[in-house]
Simulated scan of single mutants.
Amino acid sequence: MKVAIVHDELMRRGGAEQVVMTMLKAFPQADVFTLAYNPEGTYPEYKNYKVNTSWLQFLSKSVKWMQRLYFPFAIWAMKTLKVHGYDIVLISNTHSAKYVNIDDDAKVFIYTYTPFRLAWDPESYSQYNDSKGLSRLIFDYVINILKKIDKDAAQRGDYFMGMTQETGQRIKDAYGVQEIKLIPPDVKTRNFHLSDKPKEYYLLVSRLEYYKKADLAIEAFNELGLKLIVVGNGTKADELKQLAKSNIEFKKGLSSEELAELYANCKALIFPQHEDYGITPLEANASGRPVIAFGAGGVMETMVPYTGDASKSTAVFFQEQNEKSLIDAIELFETLKFDSKFIRQHAEKYDEKVFMSELKKFIIEKYEEK
């Protein structure tokens, strides 16, 4: 049984790139295919594999250039990337992985994090929201084309997998899929540890992009004056640094060990966005630390919300995505006492061993049915 794993692009460090690493542990002999690969931009573990790239590799030296060239060059490049001679093709996908050229007799499994955000949820991009007149008309024209291309490419899948009930419904709505196997992404609990004496700071770990809502956290902490450490980088980094007061510190390019230390010693992780899944709340939980999260999206399925007993909870939710609601949640959190061992045990339900077992079982069973 020969397996290929295809991912959108390997140019950054994110939750999807961590999931692909776990897929490779489940199928260690698999070959890897992707739009473009930057060994220094993504996780160093990928250097242990031969990564096959499209011709866009020669033009996309950064995420910014990859995004600029996406329409139409990335689509074209992936359609010409041949993934031939495989019994199983496992596609890890949000945008372009499902465009690759696959043998007709291969069994295709598509693990979709969420349907392509630009096509199906353009309002999550500040560039779209800020566009007007002719610019908006061009945006809408391109989006309509992307929707058609994206939906057509999805029909190549024989079996679909998703993360949560919410994202599963999005996949059904976008692609007309009838059945979806839900397998929540894993957290690598072995990489995180508990601390006996957490310190007096809160933590935010995120790409610094518009829809991640880091500005909401910064405004709240500007008001409260409490210490916040922000870990991440992105197109909004400079803007957010200008917004932040002196009680807010920015870090990027940390090692796994450095990040684990920050998780273990924070008071809580701040999670202000509506995320499809959200791996960072589970990483905080794996460190025994609770989460203060906007009560929507993936955290509704992965967290145990505080409803009166903090010792049996992993998170405090705030219900409105605004500064006051977040401040109220932080002030409530300050009065509560959580159980770090309970929180860690909860995270272990999402360990990579669980993900690997469910993924392998589903794929092998479906493959053998043929």
Score class of each variant (00 low, 15 high):
K267Q: 14
K324T: 15
Q165Y: 12
I279F: 04
K341Y: 11
E219C: 04
V89K: 02
S325N: 13
I180A: 12
S313Q: 12
T314R: 10
K132L: 09
K181G: 02
D339N: 15
Y277V: 06
L81P: 07
F139K: 06
M78F: 01
F73V: 02
K360H: 01
E323K: 15
L204I: 12
Y350V: 00
A4F: 11
N247A: 03
Q155A: 13
I229N: 14
G168Q: 04
G162F: 01
V108E: 12
E320K: 15
K251A: 07
D87N: 15
G288E: 13
I5D: 06
V231Q: 11
D196S: 15
F271D: 07
A347K: 03
D130F: 03
P305G: 07
T302M: 01
T53W: 05
N285E: 14
M300F: 04
F109M: 10
V83W: 07
K337L: 09
E348P: 04
V230E: 10
T280A: 14
N322Y: 08
L182W: 01
V187N: 08
M78V: 00
A97F: 09
D87Q: 01
K370C: 08
V231H: 09
R136V: 10
A119F: 05
M300Y: 00
G15Y: 09
A74D: 07
G232R: 13
E223I: 14
M1Y: 10
F338E: 02
M1P: 08
Y141F: 15
E40Q: 07
K151S: 14
I292K: 09
R12P: 00
E166F: 06
N247C: 08
W65M: 05
L203F: 04
V291N: 04
V177Q: 06
